[in-house]
């Protein structure tokens, strides 16, 4: 046990030389080889499934030819990336992608936490279960189907809104699929509808996992429910919030293709508010299907996300190491 304490204090010693660090890690590896073995199958899988194919990113810099293969195709530098920045759309798609993602991250996270806390407060267990099931249902429906459901509400002539709801309120029918001003709201609502169950269930599991002793101690101190939530529940799930947000930031340049392409029914008139990097790439390559160009887009999206995560993780980890990704 002495050794272990020694490791702990040494590990905190960030000013150690790297050779010393390495030696320490190797000693740990020897002593805790059981842990290493436990992790081995998973690491091996990642190596094969994720790392082995990564040699393929070179395709983004090549003019891919099937007969020559990935390695044999000729290098063309950044030629494949050009189309991403070729028009003034480049600004619009980047702006849309980032703004929507920020909005979605903020909303889904806060709604998820809120719902999870409420669910946890509800005492009838069977009701909790029922609510959980209901709010998770939208998660199960593919975006193609969601697009039809949205259409059922928004259809110009036959839609529920124009047909039933708006006349009841005395509002003239709206041509939903050609008016850009409504779409930021519609897309946000759809995204929330689909994402809330998922997000809630993660935080709910986190809340359930909180050691009950904390609450008991608080109760003895006379803290009411609100105080308990504020002082115990929220801080306890902060590591989750932080990590989920960091992960979401990594994908900030990616957008849900189905949400932005299928749900607005690929309406050209809406493109200023629905065109994101993914839909742009899809449309651009529709007629050409170029592997090099599509991997270039993916690489660009990943790279930006990567930089953002590395930076934000550094900030988070300076404040609290437990809340950081790595």
């Amino acid at each position: 046990m002495k050794n272990e304490v020694a490791y702990k204090s040494q590990a905190d010693h960030s000013k150690m030389k790297w050779t010393a660090k390495l030696a320490l890690e190797l000693r740990k590896a020897k002593r805790y080889r059981a842990l290493v073995f436990m992790a081995l199958p998973g690491l091996l899988y990642l190596l094969i499934n994720n790392y082995l194919p990564m040699f393929g990113v070179v395709v983004a810099f090549k003019n891919y030819n099937f007969t020559k293969g990935i390695l044999g195709s000729e290098w063309i530098g950044f030629e494949n990336f050009k189309y991403l920045f070729a028009t003034k759309d480049a600004y619009i798609i980047t702006r849309n992608t980032i703004l929507y993602n920020f909005l979605f991250i903020a909303l889904t996270t806060s709604a998820g936490i809120g719902t999870a806390i409420i669910l946890n407060e509800i005492r009838k267990r069977f009701l909790t279960k029922m609510y959980q099931t209901f709010i998770l249902l939208p998660h199960l429906i593919s975006m193609v189907i969601v697009a039809y459901l949205v259409l059922a509400f928004l259809d110009v002539e036959k839609g529920f809104l124009n047909n039933t709801l708006l006349p009841m309120l005395g509002i003239d029918p709206i041509s939903w699929y050609s008016e850009t001003k409504y779409w930021p709201w519609i897309l946000t609502l759809v995204s929330l509808w689909k994402g809330i169950g998922n997000s809630c269930i993660i935080y709910f599991a986190a809340i359930i996992g909180i050691d009950n002793e904390y609450y008991e101690a608080a109760r003895i101190d006379g803290a009411n429910r609100w105080r308990q939530i504020w002082n115990i529940t929220i801080p306890s799930i902060m590591p989750y919030v932080s990590i989920m947000t960091l992960l979401a930031i990594g994908r900030i340049f990616y957008s849900d293709f189905g949400l932005f392409y299928q749900v607005p029914l690929n309406s050209g008139l809406l493109s200023s508010v629905t065109n994101t990097i993914d839909t742009y790439v899809f449309r651009a390559l529709m007629t050409m299907g170029d592997i090099g160009m599509s991997s270039a887009a993916g690489l660009y999206q990943s790279f930006v996300g990567f930089i953002l995560v590395v930076v934000s993780n550094a900030i988070v980890s300076r404040k609290n190491k437990d809340n950081a990704l790595y």
Partner: peptide
């Protein structure tokens, strides 16, 4: 290739809307 990718996107914004009279 680059130009076609960009032009296809522009066409997507206008063509169908024009050709259906919208």
């Amino acid at each position: 290739r680059t130009e076609i990718a960009a032009v296809t996107n522009v066409m997507n914004q206008y063509q169908v809307a024009l050709e259906t009279g919208m």
